[in-house]
Amino acid sequence: MNRKKIQILSIPYLIWIIGFTLIPLVFVVSKALVTPDDRLTADNLTAIFDSVHRKALITSLEVAFISSLICILISYPAALIIRSFRIKNRKAMIFVMILPMWMNFILRILAIQMLLSKNGIINHLLSILGLGQIEIINTTFAIILGTVYDYLPYMLLPVLNCVLAIPDDIVEASKDLGANRYTVLTRILLPLSLSGIGSGITMVFVPSMTEFVIANILGGGKILLLGNIIEQEFSVTMNWNLGSGLSVALMIFVLVSTLLFGRDSGADRGYVI
């Protein structure tokens, strides 16, 4: 059968791309470029640099950056440790690590709120033990904590897939050639894990930068991320043009940061199932 005929099978998808990916993006961009009374303007786009929006943008970047970093710092040692497990146990570990994703994510964040809040479970336990109180609810730190918790499996999975795929032979060979554990880590394991870490970053950074539910619940509505501001433009202030403009600006930021990290399409994404 010739290739042309087989390619025809992609046509329904091509139509879908045009109808539900391309045209909607054109719409959001065109909405972003006009005022509510349809005059051409760039104000909606540059609005991202207004003081309130700029502050939200910086907080969003901060949350996304620190959360991604903490996710890496938790996931990478975990992956190396799981690598030392027997094959059977490795699979069980992967299973146990992704299972929490099947509990509804808003409920999980609410559970974190219950744990962290002023009269929450952790403070309750601390007071029984006669220790001091923690006051982290409604801070940026609480948002970061929730973000790390929510997206950790998305970092763990690609990092694990990548680290577990490194052949033992290479590690053995480098040891035979006199490499100590530090050299094995920095010269062999880390370079070979970079693609997994990269996939993990793209799966954690973008969602955590644009999230608004976690910030709503754990930030107590006081700390605004870009996602919160865009959401409010659509549901409260009803300025869809400004909301679209900020969305487009956000999209540009996401694209630039993705390009900076670089990424190979789906290679180490790993299946969730």
């Binding site: 539900f20 990916t21 719409f27 959001v28 793209t202 973008v206 969602p207 996602g227 865009i230 969305s247």
Partner: peptide
Amino acid sequence: IPLLNADIVTGIALMLW
């Protein structure tokens, strides 16, 4: 695109259309 784009942008774009 749908994988990399922020969910909020995908959602808004689809809704507007």
